[in-house]
Structures are given as structure tokens and as C-alpha cells.
Computed example of a mutant assay.
Amino acid sequence: MSATLRTLERADLPFLHALFNDPEVTRYWFVEPTYSLAAMEDRYNQRIHDESERRFVIDDAGRRCGLVELVDIDLRHRNCEFQIIVAPEAQGNGYAGAATRSALDYAFRTLNLHKVYLLVDNLNAAAIHVYQKAGFVSEGVLRQEYFADGAYQDVTRMAIYQRDYLAD
């Protein structure tokens, strides 16, 4: 595996459209799988110069394997939220761990952020394992935070600090 992160481009939108219309993918993002390609294009155009977010495609020799986002970047408080999707057909190949580490390198070494946090569905054991392995620790449980699959779901907020990440 030689995956890298590269900036999301307009040509990647059909790939994202497929991801965000897959119920198995969107279930863990707490959104409905009802995104139109036109809406995604509009959103891309609106956000192209937004400095409060960075979006990357996980790329393995030209094959799109997933999406990584750093959103709600707050330069005053030096934190942001981390989000990741590995395409179902690419799962189980180490992309999530490698992409998480690459995103954290960018957040802490390039953006000089203090803290990166995330929300993870408590039922998503595979993701929790990846995050813990990368150094994220639990900050607490948000009970019945999202409605998915006909029920309210608990999520855990996890975080990692720059000092801890760079010490490893």
C-alpha cells in the first residue's frame, strides 16, 4: 500500500457522490444517503476558498480509496474536527490508519494545531481501534446524539493533542 493524501478536486466529486449515497458509509457519518451530484458541486464551489476546512482524497497510485476531512478549523483555539471515510471496497487494507496519521501530521506540523477531535459511533469498533492506535483518547460519551437506523445512537468524542502526537 502506497496511499497518500491529496487535495480534493472537482474531478473527485463523482467518487464522493457514490460514497455519500451508500447507506453503509453514511450510517457512521450520521447523515442520510441522499446527496445529489449537483448539490455536491454547488457545495464544492461555495467552499473552495474556505480556510476553515481541508479535504483530502486517499489515493493509492491513482485509485481513490476514501476521503479525509479536517473541518471547523479554529486557528484562534488551534483545534479542528477529524473525519474519514474509507470506501467499502478499500477497507481492511490499512488505509484508515495511514490516512489518519497523514492527516494528523498535516494538522500538527503544517497547521500547528493544538488539538484534533472526532466523534465516533460507539458501535463502530473498527474505527475506534484505528483512532486509539493513532493516539486518540476518549473525552466522553454523548448519549443519544444522532438518529440512525431507526434509533438514537451514542457517540464518543475522542481527541489527540499536538504535544502527545509529536512525542511519539
Rank of each mutant, 00 (worst) to 15 (best):
R63Q: 11
Y95D: 06
G62W: 02
A107F: 06
D59H: 02
G62N: 04
I73M: 06
H77I: 01
G97L: 15
L67V: 08
C65D: 02
V57P: 00
R109P: 00
L67D: 14
L67F: 06
G92C: 10
R101V: 13
I73C: 07
R109K: 15
R63P: 00
G92Y: 11
G62C: 05
D74F: 02
D105L: 04
V71S: 14
A90E: 15
T100S: 06
D105C: 04
A103V: 12
D72S: 14
L75C: 00
V71Q: 11
A61F: 02
H114S: 07
A103K: 10
N79H: 15
K115W: 05
Q91I: 11
K115H: 10
L104Q: 02
G94N: 11
P88N: 12
A103Y: 07
D72E: 14
I58P: 00
P88M: 12
N93F: 13
A96I: 11
D105W: 00
H77P: 00
D72P: 00
A61C: 01
Q91H: 08
V86Y: 07
I58A: 04
Y95Q: 10
T100L: 02
K115I: 05
T100M: 04
A61N: 10
T100Y: 01
L67S: 04
Q83I: 07
R101C: 03
R63A: 08
R64F: 02
I84P: 12
V57K: 00
I58N: 01
A96E: 08
G92K: 10
V57R: 00
A98H: 11
G92I: 10
D59I: 02
N93K: 15
D74L: 01
R63T: 13
L111T: 08
G66H: 03
A90Q: 15
R109W: 01
I58T: 03
A61T: 01
A96P: 09
F82K: 08
T110D: 15
Q83F: 03
D105T: 11
I85N: 07
V68W: 02
R63H: 06
T100Q: 04
